[in-house]
Nucleic acid binder design. Sequence first.
DNA 1: GTGAAAGCGCTAACAC
DNA 2: GTGTTAGCGCTTTCAC
Lengths: 340, 340
Amino acid sequence: MSRNATLKDVAERAGVHPGTASRALNPETRSLVSEGTVRRVLQAAKALAYTPNPMARSLKTNRTMMVGIIVPDLANALFPPIVRGADSVLTPGGYLSIIAETDNDAAREREIFDALLARQVDGLIIASARREDEAVREAADRHLPVVLVNRRDDSARLPAVVGDDTDGVEQAVRHLVDLGHRRIGHLAGPAELSTGIQRARAFRQCMHELGGDLDPALIVSCRVYSEEEGARAARELFDTAVPRPTAVLAGNDQLAVGLYEFLRERGLNVPGDVSVVGYNDMPYVDKLSPPLTTVRVPHARIGAEAARILLRRLVDDVSDATTVSLPVELVVRGSTAARR
Amino acid sequence: MSRNATLKDVAERAGVHPGTASRALNPETRSLVSEGTVRRVLQAAKALAYTPNPMARSLKTNRTMMVGIIVPDLANALFPPIVRGADSVLTPGGYLSIIAETDNDAAREREIFDALLARQVDGLIIASARREDEAVREAADRHLPVVLVNRRDDSARLPAVVGDDTDGVEQAVRHLVDLGHRRIGHLAGPAELSTGIQRARAFRQCMHELGGDLDPALIVSCRVYSEEEGARAARELFDTAVPRPTAVLAGNDQLAVGLYEFLRERGLNVPGDVSVVGYNDMPYVDKLSPPLTTVRVPHARIGAEAARILLRRLVDDVSDATTVSLPVELVVRGSTAARR
DNA sequence: GTGAAAGCGCTAACAC
DNA sequence: GTGTTAGCGCTTTCAC
């Protein structure tokens, strides 16, 4: 924006060669320079309020110290904590995070992926992966430093950090079964997302193990995670499953909110007639009436852990394509009650 | 991340000098090159999947094509739409947005401001301005290309885009007065923020003009915008103002949510005993019970307009420190009713 | 321990 | 119309 001091300025003021100034300023190479010179250079740098030009440095070192974070949608309260968690690790590590939104659009994701690579980011954290994802596939093919968060792709060739969906669903179903429910419905998330398929799979498994009703009509798939789709799927569920479920596990909190709407329209009471469990523990679901029982996913921790894995790759060049599952916790509120 | 084609590669493949290739690739200078050459260069570039190295370009042009967006907190549902609105203008303009959060911390804001400048961003959109703000002051002093959004600083030396607080408050108060309320309380936002002071000022003014009760005990200041602080201030309001207000205008929706909590604890019904109006129309306030009547602020438009002003400065070098006020709209829901 | 010099990839002023 | 050259600010190899 305005004329800044350059290394040359600092060198001149300190009466040394720019090369020497560079060495003195860089902690890694500082030991190569005599103590007195280091002091003079540091002093000159301070006096001139010198900040190295990252462009010039990047051009030389081939590293931008920037990491891209790709999320579907910042307005979805799920993602800001992930971003913040990642940021809290990246910033102290000297990296700048570049956040971009895909709007849940595969084409847009592709564009952003390309744009970020063109900008020479050193690595990428992707929260928008679909199970079949072109950008993710390319990242794996090219061995780019990429970590997936929250959602995985099917190839599983990239490291990923997610919440433990299997355990989360089990806690939820067990809670409902303990309350006496057997006929439990599931509003399954999009089949193209790992969370959707994973939670649905865990749901079937649990129902089987815990003695729930295995009627296939109890599972309805949602095309997207949204309130409207939740309401639509809820309608389908309650119109199809006979007798109607006494409890429903929603694939995420947004679907649960749609379910709430539907039940209210139908004149069905929560939890009197139907118990409801959500997933994620978004902000404000404790303010719904009744407050939503849901599975809390540690999104900030997920983001932080992903950043740590990425930095390990970037800084120490250690890589492994393992998936880290972080523990989740059922938060019981007012939307679940014993079956009447 | 991996070896990319350089301009030199493209030039070689097209059988021309790098300088010529550069001209052919740049739309601005393309007319200087013969048609056939342009075609060959473009073709070579395509074949090699050439993307210009932004570092090298920036080093030369002294422009990074990056804009910093500073927000207090992405988890506050207010700010993602601002970011998205800005982004929707910046991206087509060829700019990349760098989003950073201050956590409502002045020191952190200062750090981020410096870090972004060190990264050589071309301009800044600041949503975290306090009325007295060191970073904002410096930006003005140095004539940096900066646009304020949502919140302004007192010096008013920088362009700003905000919602029309005066009109918003007037619509809210008029609505309450029309419902028969006279004893209307106000949970004022932080005095260090322009929105807090502005809305409180407008509130006093309106109450005066519309015949409301001017009892100073009806206005309570909040230190921060948060639910807890809203609840605390509500307690103070209802403990101090005698007789108690029959309606309350909250400085923002978060304060309104805190007010809800307090009223529920006190056993006061909304809107039966007390009507409540919020400010901002955050997501999910329509899901509260009762759904919150509030003033809708066009945050996405605010972000977009700010970006437009910034681009005008960056691209065409037009600048003016005027404040743009965008129209707001009262959304009447279930939290307001006629005084009994 | 320090200086000299090359060069990262690009653009732009200047030749021809 | 195209080639040549210099140089943006920095790091790093090579001399000395």
